[in-house]
Computed example of a mutant assay.
Amino acid sequence: MPIPVQAKQISHSTMREEVYHTILEWIMAGELRPEEKLVDTDLAENLGVSRTPVREALRRLADKGLVETSASRWTRVTKISVKEAELIYPIIWQLEDLAIEMALPRITDADMDKMEQSNLELEQAITNGDPVLAYQADARFHETFIDLSHNSHLFGILEDLKIKHRRLEVHYFGGSGFALNSVNEHTEIIKAIKDQDLKQAQKMIRLNWKGSLKRLMEVTCSG
C-alpha cells in the first residue's frame, strides 16, 4: 500500500481527529484509490502513531461508507458508486433548493463577488486538469449561499452528505470533458440571484446537480 508522500507526524493532543482527517483527506483526494488495501501498521508507522487511533479512524470511515472490511482479512477503500450518486445527488439539490430560498434575501454584492471568483477558479482548475482544486472551488461556490441560509441543521446534513459526494466530484472533475458545463450552469445561478429570481435560481441549482450526475455517469461508464 503506497502512502502519500506528504504524510506528516501527528501530535498526540489531537491524535484521533488528525489521524481520521488525514486518512479521510487521502481518500477524498484520490491519493488512496478505490479498492486500495489499507494496512493499519503501515498507516500507523507513516503517521507516527500507534495502531489504535488508525483502527478507530478506519472504523469511522467504514461508518461513512468510505472503507470496507472482510472478516478481519482485509480493509480497503470502497469503490466509487454511481448508484450512490443517484441516491445522494437528489437529496443535495432538494436541500440546496431550500438553502437558496432562505439565503436569497441576505445575499450581498460581496457574496456575489465570492461566487463569481469561485466559479472563475473552478474554470481555471478544470482547464489545468486539477480535479481536487476544481472540487474545492465548486464547494466554495455552493457553500456561499448555503452558509447564508443561517440554518445549522441544514448545513450539518449537507456537510455529512458531501463527505461522500466529494469523492464522486473529484472523480467527475478529473475525468469529464464536459465538466466546464458546471461553470456555465453556475453563471446562470449567479444571474438568477442577481435578478432576485428565486424560482429560476432553484431551477438552475437543480439543473446543475442533475447535469453533474448525468456527466458523472458518463465518466464512470466510459472509464
Results as ranks from 00 to 15, higher is better:
114 K>N: 12
115 M>A: 01
115 M>S: 01
116 E>H: 02
117 Q>K: 11
117 Q>Y: 01
118 S>A: 15
119 N>P: 00
120 L>I: 03
120 L>Y: 05
121 E>A: 01
121 E>H: 01
121 E>D: 15
123 E>V: 00
124 Q>L: 13
125 A>G: 00
127 T>I: 04
127 T>V: 09
128 N>T: 15
128 N>L: 13
130 D>C: 11
130 D>H: 14
131 P>N: 13
132 V>H: 12
133 L>A: 15
133 L>C: 08
133 L>G: 05
136 Q>T: 12
137 A>Y: 03
138 D>K: 08
142 H>I: 05
143 E>D: 15
143 E>L: 14
143 E>C: 10
144 T>Q: 07
144 T>I: 02
145 F>C: 07
145 F>A: 04
146 I>D: 11
147 D>M: 04
147 D>K: 09
148 L>I: 00
148 L>C: 06
148 L>E: 03
149 S>I: 01
149 S>A: 11
149 S>E: 00
150 H>V: 00
151 N>F: 02
152 S>P: 03
153 H>E: 09
155 F>I: 14
156 G>V: 02
156 G>H: 10
157 I>D: 04
158 L>E: 05
158 L>F: 02
160 D>H: 05
161 L>E: 02
162 K>E: 15
164 K>Q: 14
165 H>F: 06
165 H>R: 06
166 R>V: 01
169 E>T: 09
169 E>P: 00
170 V>M: 06
171 H>L: 04
172 Y>N: 00
173 F>T: 12
173 F>A: 10
173 F>D: 12
175 G>E: 11
176 S>K: 02
177 G>E: 03
180 L>S: 06
180 L>R: 09
180 L>E: 02
181 N>S: 14
182 S>Y: 08
182 S>P: 05
183 V>L: 04
185 E>T: 12
185 E>I: 08
185 E>A: 14
186 H>W: 05
187 T>E: 14
188 E>G: 13
188 E>I: 11
189 I>C: 07
189 I>P: 10
189 I>D: 10
190 I>A: 05
190 I>R: 06
190 I>S: 07
191 K>N: 09
192 A>M: 06
193 I>V: 12
195 D>Q: 14
196 Q>P: 07
197 D>L: 15
198 L>F: 13
200 Q>S: 13
201 A>T: 10
204 M>N: 13
204 M>T: 14
207 L>V: 09
209 W>R: 07
209 W>H: 12
210 K>W: 04
